[in-house]
Design a protein around this nucleic acid. Sequence first.
DNA 1: TACATACTGAACCGAATGGTTCAGTATGCG
DNA 2: CGCATACTGAACCATTCGGTTCAGTATGTA
Lengths: 121, 121
Amino acid sequence: MVQYAKARLDASFAALSDATRRGVLEQLGRADASITDLAEKFHMTLTGMKKHVGVLEQAGLVTTEKVGRVRTCKLGLRGLEEEAAWIERYRQVWDARFDELDKIVEELKRKEKVDGRKKRE
Amino acid sequence: MVQYAKARLDASFAALSDATRRGVLEQLGRADASITDLAEKFHMTLTGMKKHVGVLEQAGLVTTEKVGRVRTCKLGLRGLEEEAAWIERYRQVWDARFDELDKIVEELKRKEKVDGRKKRE
DNA sequence: TACATACTGAACCGAATGGTTCAGTATGCG
DNA sequence: CGCATACTGAACCATTCGGTTCAGTATGTA
């Protein structure tokens, strides 16, 4: 369904909207970690951290595997390709929109016979 | 405060985690719009849409100006530079992480070949 | 002046979030 | 066996979210 990608963006952006979860991703970028490791690092209960990991896992950003007593968390198979793509596309639209504005400003300036240098980098 | 940038990422990723709001951003990329315009386009009440616009405005992604009865919404001065940067940084870490894995796999494959040769010898 | 339009704000609603505690279960280890 | 570790699940809690209705206010227009 078309809804699928949309729901995925919902989930991943929501996952990224929490500082703790962004921190967990950065941490897992450095090394795999158990729930206990992460809970300690971020000063919260095991249960609390497990929920965060659940959110990240649901969003496909983290995978976990339990061996013995220990559940090890690592970065998921999915990168943030779709999210990066959405943002990139948006940035293009945004740039275009302001280029348009710049053009209008340029036009006005030229009409005023003012030698205007580009304002926006 | 240092917390500022963090809170901003919180706000903008949260803003992006809703399909309606992403739609509003895309729409405003095409043309400025009133609250009424947007409410109609996304099939919800004025009040509901105003809340969404409020979230986007709070995140700095949209600006609005009221002239007469009409509040016009347009893309904000902020693009998604910080968000893009965060994701890009993450993607690099992610890539590095999997390159590492690839190397390990390569290493294993090489050893297997060597072992295989040894056995055959 | 009268009426329609466009928004605003308060109040409410059910569901989701981010966290906790507490009471398990499963596992490792001496 | 007996105890510590590591997680799990249910229940609870306050807050936020996404949406509504309803009752305004302000503005444009005939």
